[in-house]
Write a protein that binds this DNA or RNA. Structure first.
Lengths: 195, 195
DNA sequence: GGTCTCATGTAAATAGTTACATGATTAT
DNA sequence: ATAATCATGTAACTATTTACATGAGACC
C-alpha cells in the first residue's frame, strides 16, 4: 500500500461524523474490520498530521463530566481531498492468506491438521455470516433513511456473499481432502445451515 | 503478521522442489499470488537466514553454460520446522480492502466513480475467473498423479468460488447503486469513435 | 559494441503492530 | 481504596516495498 490510504480512511470516517481516535478504533474493530483496520499506532499520529495539514480540525467539546477526548471533524479542504482520492481507481491488495497457504502445503502437514484448519475455518465463516446477517437486520431497522444506507447494505451483502461461498467451498474441500472422517450424510447435516 | 510466516512460505516452496530466489519470486507472482506474495527484498535475506539456521541448504549446480543462480533445497530439520508450523492454526489476516473502503464511502465520491470502480472490479473478477479455470484445466491435464494435486485443485476451487460470488455481487451492487447505466453505456459508445 | 534480460542482492523508505506510559474516570 | 476501563499517545520493533547496484550471459 504505497501511497498510503490510512489518512483517507480516517477522512472518510470523520466525514460520516466527528470522532476521536478512540472512537475510530472502536468503529473499525467492531463494525468495519471486514474491510479495514488501523491500530492506535497509526490513528493518533495520522490525526495529528491531518490536523496540521488543515484537512481535519479538532472540535471544541462542552462536556465537563465526561472523560477527556478530542474529536475531530473534517474540513472542506479535507472533503475535497477525500473526494479526489475516492475518484481514483482503488489499488488492489496483494493478499497473504495464511490459511490458504497451509492448505496449499497440506501434503507436508501433520496428518489431519489440514482438515482441522478447514473445519475451524468453516466454523468461523458461519459465525461471521450470522454476524453480518444480524447487522444487516439492525442497519435496516435502525438506519432507515440514512444517506449512507444503500452503500452499507451493498457492503454487507458482499460479506454475506463471500462467507456463503466460502462455507460451500469448505464442504467441497472437506469431501475432497478429508474422506473417512465423517459419512457424507453427517457432513451434509453439519453443513445444512447454508446450502 | 507478527510471528512471521515468510520463512515458512519459503520452506514450503522449497519442499515442493529446490529453487533459487528468482524462481521463487516468479512462482509466487505467476501462480500463487492469489494467496501469497513476497518481494525480492524479503526473499533473498530470508533465504540467507534459513540457510544459516540449517533449515535449507544451497544446492551444487553442475551447469556451466547457464547463468549463475543458487537453488536451495529444504533440509530434514527444515521439513520438521515446516511441519510443525503447518500444524498450528493459521492466524487470520486483517484485510485492508481499498475497493470496499471506497464503496463504503461512496456517498462522498464524485458522481459515477463508485459505479466505475464496481464495473472495473467486475471485469477484473471475470478475467481472474477465466484464468483460474484455465489453470485448473492445465493442472488437471499435466499434473495427473502429482502428490499435491488434490490440494492444488481445492485451492483453485476456492479462487473460482470467490470470483463467481463476487461477480454475482457486482451485478447486485450495480443494480442497487448505479441506475442510469444505459446513459453511461451510450456515452462510452460515443467515445469509442475517437479511439 | 550496445542493449536487453537474468539473477542476486541491499539501502532506504514506508507501513503497521505491540507494548507500554500516563493520567483521568468509573465501578465496587 | 482498589481495580477496571477510558483515552491519548509514543517508542521500539517487525514487516514489506521500492528502487537501485552489480555483473554476467544472450541477442543482434
Amino acid at each position: 500500500m504505497s501511497p498510503k490510504s490510512t489518512p483517507y480512511a480516517l477522512l472518510g470516517l470523520l466525514s460520516i461524523e466527528p470522532m476521536a481516535g478512540y472512537d475510530i478504533r472502536r468503529e473499525l474493530q467492531e463494525s468495519l474490520s471486514y474491510f479495514w483496520n488501523e491500530s492506535y499506532g497509526q490513528i493518533y499520529p495520522a490525526l495529528k498530521r491531518l490536523s496540521a495539514q488543515g484537512l481535519i480540525a479538532p472540535v471544541r467539546t462542552h462536556k465537563k463530566g465526561g472523560r477527556e477526548r478530542q474529536p475531530y471533524t473534517i474540513t472542506s479542504k479535507g472533503r475535497a481531498a477525500l473526494r479526489n482520492w475516492l475518484g481514483e481507481p482503488p489499488r488492489q491488495t496483494l493478499p497473504s492468506n495464511e490459511f490458504l497457504l497451509k492448505i496449499f502445503l497440506g501434503r507436508f502437514a501433520p496428518p489431519g491438521s489440514c482438515c482441522e484448519h478447514i473445519r475451524r475455518h468453516l466454523a468461523q465463516c458461519k459465525q461471521l455470516l450470522a454476524n453480518y446477517e444480524n447487522i444487516r437486520k439492525v442497519v435496516h431497522a435502525e438506519r432507515r433513511g440514512h444517506p449512507d444506507l444503500d452503500y452499507w447494505l451493498v457492503l454487507l451483502n458482499h460479506g454475506i456473499a463471500m462467507r456463503r461461498a466460502e462455507i460451500r467451498w469448505c464442504g467441497q474441500a472437506l469431501r475432497a481432502l478429508c474422506a473417512g472422517r465423517k459419512t457424507k450424510k453427517k457432513l451434509r447435516r453439519s453443513l445444512r445451515y447454508q446450502g
